Amino acid sequence: MPAPSPSTSDAAASLCILVVDDDEAVRGSIACHLDRLGHRVIEARDAVWALELFERHRPDLVLSDVEMAEYDGCWLARQVRERDQGGWTPIIFLSALTEATDVAAGIAAGADDYLLKPVHPIVLEAKLHAMRRLCRMRAQLQALSDELQRANVELQRLAWHDGLTGLLNRRGLDEHLDAAIGLAQRSGTPLTIMLCDVDHFKRYNDALGHHAGDDCLRRVAALLKQLARRPMDSVARYGGEEFALVLPDTPRAGARTLAHAITRVFGSAALPHPDSSVAAHVTLSGGITTCDPGTATPAATLLQRADEALYLAKSQGRNRFASL
């Protein structure tokens, strides 16, 4: 009488099982029984072939004879464990050996359990139920680990980015600036720091309200991000209405070109400013400093020089950039 076909729930829980035995009759008998239970079976007649199949298919379970010619099951278990780092594939040894030392040697090599030959179908099925539970637990743990990793990535993003503008915050700026300084020293290329300030922003808030002020800062951030668009460039909200640009491999001449572009783009954007003594639209003042190739300048010193240059630009009438 033919065995009943596996139910939908059994099929959903079916395993991919690698059966390794140099005795074709034993291997075929076990494979036939596993197939009737609804599992997908891969067969190997020796340990070397089994290892190749393991790397190709990554089965859910390995059922391996211990005593085989040339390379035995212990060798196979050790090889599987070396290639399965970070994961866990259950290995069950099939053996007629019952001595405690033999069992201990197998476990030490990487096996998880033993089945005595000849394998009883009921015992084998019970072991498979246990392996299915372990596979479900492993999948749940992996899903939890993936979720935690995504959460950590998001937490790091939040820790490094400003909630209002989406730009780097002060902490993110410090990290990027330190990395940029190290890169400039190693590659012998110039590094430019630019600090920008929205002119008369307090007056903007007083005239239009803080909600409009937040919208203004988001628009300013978006425009600066578009202008500093090279992959290595970074833009940060330095504080309040101040923004910082870190521009690797940018000499003084390149920084001046970007400064002119910023002034021109903000003029074209014409974001209305109802109470500015500089222009009818939102304008920026900026300070620029460049670290020459091969110069080891601390981040705090670069930021201080850029801030002094920003103060100079404001004292000269705003809506302009100065460099030190």
Rank of each mutant, 00 (worst) to 15 (best):
H39S: 04
D113P: 10
E70R: 09
S277M: 15
Q185G: 04
Y311W: 07
S5E: 15
R27C: 10
S285T: 05
L164W: 08
D215N: 12
A269V: 13
S14Q: 10
M68K: 01
L183W: 06
T189N: 11
A126N: 12
S29Q: 09
L258V: 12
L61V: 01
C74D: 05
T295D: 14
L223P: 09
A50V: 01
P298D: 00
R218C: 13
L177G: 02
G28A: 10
D197M: 07
H200G: 12
L177S: 01
C74I: 03
A130E: 10
I42Q: 01
P231M: 03
M68E: 07
L284G: 14
K314W: 00
W160Q: 15
I107F: 12
A179I: 01
L303T: 07
A13K: 05
D215T: 06
V278Q: 11
P248H: 00
R36H: 10
V246I: 15
S145P: 13
L223W: 11
P293Q: 08
L18P: 04
D60T: 03
I91D: 06
M131Y: 00
C196G: 11
Y311E: 06
Q316K: 10
A322F: 14
L177K: 05
V246C: 05
P298L: 04
D23M: 00
A104E: 09
V103Q: 07
K202D: 13
A212C: 10
Y71V: 09
V235K: 00
V153E: 14
L245C: 06
S64G: 07
D60A: 01
L155S: 05
T295S: 15
V66T: 05
V20I: 02
A261S: 11
D21R: 04
R218Q: 15
A261C: 08
L224D: 00
S29G: 14
P190Q: 02
F93A: 02
R320Y: 14
I107H: 03
I42R: 03
F243E: 02
Q142S: 13
D199H: 12
G209N: 08
K127Y: 09
L97E: 11
L148M: 06
